[in-house]
Nucleic acid binder design. Structure first.
Length: 507
RNA sequence: GGUCCGGUCGUCUAGCGGUUAGGAUGCUGCCCUUUCACGGCGGAGGUCGCGGGUUCAAAUCCCGUCCGGACUACCA
């Protein structure tokens, strides 16, 4: 039988890296087995629905290259793939009726207040929390009829079997046993007639032929409810795969205080989708051996349940940065220029960098400058990008890193001036620089190098450092950056002269 | 309170009864070198949570214990 898995997000918030990793695992698993990955929207709780999130889910998934062969936005024979629509079609009504008829579900008429009281009582008396039958599990048909006749609101609860052991075979953890008496009677249909996750997801998983229920480990404790549901219907249980979650550096659940966690924020921050994918695939899963840097195809090829980790992992930004720098270095300058330009122009990029949290970083001006420079002098931009790509970690950094190439008057770092324009030979050096390149049409890195070296030699300098540094400050305003000769050649004689003259005014 | 899950360098992990416990990242030293990076070569960092067993032999198997986490909603 071919593998069928589903990614079933709830449109209550933009997907964070944990959600996306969940989706990635399913994509890899489905691809590996040439199976089907299904996208299903779990929007049964209308009160928590946030407009626009469905779009963000799709956008995140598309950006990451996570594919669906079936489901929301992809079509298929098991639709609709939005649970609210399935509810309208009466799918859940039909199946809850079956459950009721078989005695595996019952109506419960407690009010919210009564339930609160019950929980309070349980807490005070140190009893197990939860609804284990209440007033209605064993109510007589007459009592139920009377309550209905009185127009009381009700929910439909699962009648968990008593005094039995429910065994879950988890693909990662193996056999997990539960005493059914410790599992409460979950609400299957709420007071509005909407199915809850416990019911809708399991019915859909069966109807959609899901073979593996892959989900976060936070679901382990409700697995017995789900298993019991499948048993009650007489359906074959899918294989449960409870994946480890991703935590923040402090070992706690990922949240805003860990910085960016939304998938799309990583895009806006300048990370490559493949970096994020490769990186998060390795949290909670390993291909065995020492493999780390892998293409999407390699990940698909290598992915198996056996490599899944039982313990939660921590999201390590340092390693993400390293990996992004690595992949950035593998791109050609023209590929990078294209990416940076798209990146600079994307609305989400500006939105991200204008946020208060990023107010201290000036990223957009450089990005925009690079973009407009590319329109007039693509060659310069490509050379600039090529020279900077080995010292940059994200797309966002290219703007600022390359800025001095395109600025008419790149700002001087005061400390750089202090240090290198104060040397006794600075003036003469810059004047000679002007003389050498004035009126020259073009120059190669070799031309620049020979100028610097011979200048050092004729001025009896043992090393070229004292010649290079003042020149660098004159050319870029900074003390750090690409190799001087390459950078000068990219700038060209005209700019070299102009900048040398400008620097002379600073001495 | 209850149920369940988890535990190898700071972090991600390899390991599946016999290894000097390996790799990556981060930190760090050296080399390269015009700076910063990149790259190359080293180093520090793990009593495999702890305590018992089983075994000639345990990170690997068993038990206990501690610590961490999840769930315990008419949310997912």
């Amino acid at each position: 039988m071919s593998v069928r898995v589903r990614y079933a997000p709830s449109p209550t918030g933009s997907p964070h890296v944990g959600n996306i990793r969940d989706a990635l695992f399913k994509h890899l698993f489905a691809k590996h087995h040439k199976g089907v990955n299904i996208l299903r929207i779990e929007d049964t709780d209308r009160t928590r629905f946030i407009p626009g999130v469905e779009e963000e889910i799709v956008e995140s998934l598309n950006w990451m290259g996570i594919e669906f062969q079936e489901g929301f936005g992809a079509g298929g024979d098991h639709g609709p793939y939005r649970q609210s629509e399935r509810k309208e079609l009466g799918i859940y009504d039909k199946w809850i009726k079956v459950l009721m008829e078989r005695g595996h579900a019952y109506k419960a008429f407690e009010t919210a207040e009564e339930l609160d009281e019950m929980r309070e009582f349980q807490k005070i008396n140190k009893q197990n929390f939860g609804y284990f039958g209440g007033m209605w599990r064993d109510a007589t048909p007459e009592q139920v009829e009377a309550a209905e006749a009185a127009g009381k609101a009700f929910v439909i609860r699962q009648r968990m079997p008593k005094n039995s052991t429910i065994v879950i075979e988890d693909a990662i953890r193996g056999r997990v046993e539960f005493d059914s008496n410790t599992v409460d009677d979950a609400v299957l249909i709420n007071g509005d007639g909407m199915p809850t996750y416990h019911f809708a997801a399991m019915v859909d998983d069966h109807l959609m032929g899901i073979t593996h229920i892959m989900r976060g480990e936070e679901w382990i404790s409700s697995a017995p409810k789900h298993a019991a549901l499948f048993d009650s219907f007489g359906w074959e249980r899918p294989i449960f795969v409870h994946c480890p979650v991703i935590n923040g550096k402090d070992g706690k659940k990922l949240s805003k205080r860990h910085g960016d966690t939304k998938c799309l924020d990583f895009r806006a921050a300048g990370y490559l989708p493949h970096t994020l994918g490769n990186f998060i695939a390795l949290i909670g899963w390993a291909p065995g051996g020492d493999r780390e840097l892998m293409t999407m195809d390699e990940l698909c090829e290598a992915f198996d349940l056996g490599g899944l980790q039982p313990a939660p992992g921590v999201f390590d930004m340092d390693k993400l940065n390293w990996m992004n720098g690595h992949y950035l270095r593998q791109l050609s300058p023209s590929e990078i220029v294209t990416k940076v330009r798209e990146f600079a122009l994307a609305e989400s990029t500006a939105e991200y960098w204008e946020r208060e949290a990023n107010a201290d970083k000036s990223v957009m001006p450089g990005l925009l400058l690079l973009n407009s420079a590319a329109a007039t002098d693509l060659e310069l931009v490509e050379r600039a990008v090529q020279l900077e790509q080995e010292r940059v970690v994200t797309l966002a950094e290219f703007g600022e890193a390359c800025a001095f190439f395109f600025q008419d008057e790149p700002p001087f770092d005061p400390k750089a001036i202090e240090k290198w324009f104060a040397v006794p030979h600075a003036r003469q050096l810059l004047e000679d620089l002007v003389t050498r390149f004035e009126g020259v049409v073009s120059c190669t890195p070799e031309d620049c190098e020979s100028f610097i070296r011979s200048w050092a030699e004729t001025n009896a300098m043992e090393k070229i450092g004292p010649v290079v540094h003042p020149t660098r400050v004159a050319m870029t305003g900074k003390t750090v950056g690409p190799g001087l000769f390459e950078l000068m050649a990219a700038l060209g004689p005209a700019r070299i002269v102009k900048r040398a003259k400008r620097a002379l005014a600073q001495i």
